[in-house]
Amino acid sequence: MVNLVWLAMLLAGIIVAASQGKIEVVTSASLEAARTAVNLALELVGLMALWLGLLRIAEEAGLVRLLARALKPLTRILFPELPPDHPALGAILMNLSANILGLGNAATPFGLKAMQELQKLNPSPEEATPAMCTFLGLNTGCITLLPATIIGIRAAANSTDPTIIVGPTILSTGASMLAAILADRLFRRATLR
């Protein structure tokens, strides 16, 4: 699916640009995007180092395992194939907590750590495991308590009540998390057969 979506976006873009006689847009947009990609990755270096460093302390102190064990009843349902105190679970929980609090820049390093741990259990290293799909579904559909950036933009636009959207955001992210969990169940069942 990702191959098709990728190809479709690229080809549709080039064809539309050509048909509107502004083919040079393709050149500038692609070069610009390639540069942006590297900048984004480099911006991650410092953040990754900070959080992975802290995470290592938490691991050596046994905190990650403690967190994983405390939430075992929940994770056993969502990730039945993972051993109950596997280090991936601790990282997954830290990632989801950071997402819930709207701390995007702390969430990514924890999430990547979780992927590394999940990859250790992967029998075919180039293909996603069901646990990875479940994790990413939870991650992208995650409930959000505090959409901080958009509150800032609303305040800057002189809203009379910038935070009025917090309640609706919690409800709609709750709905998407529920949908992700249910869809994940169905996908798992369909691929098991």
Binding site: W6, M9, L10, A12, G13, A17, V25, A29, T36, L40
Partner: peptide
């Protein structure tokens, strides 16, 4: 790079 280039072209072209 792969993903952002495809998205960038898709968006900038008006598609």
């Amino acid at each position: 790079v792969g993903m952002l280039v495809a998205i960038g072209v898709f968006r900038a072209s008006g598609a």
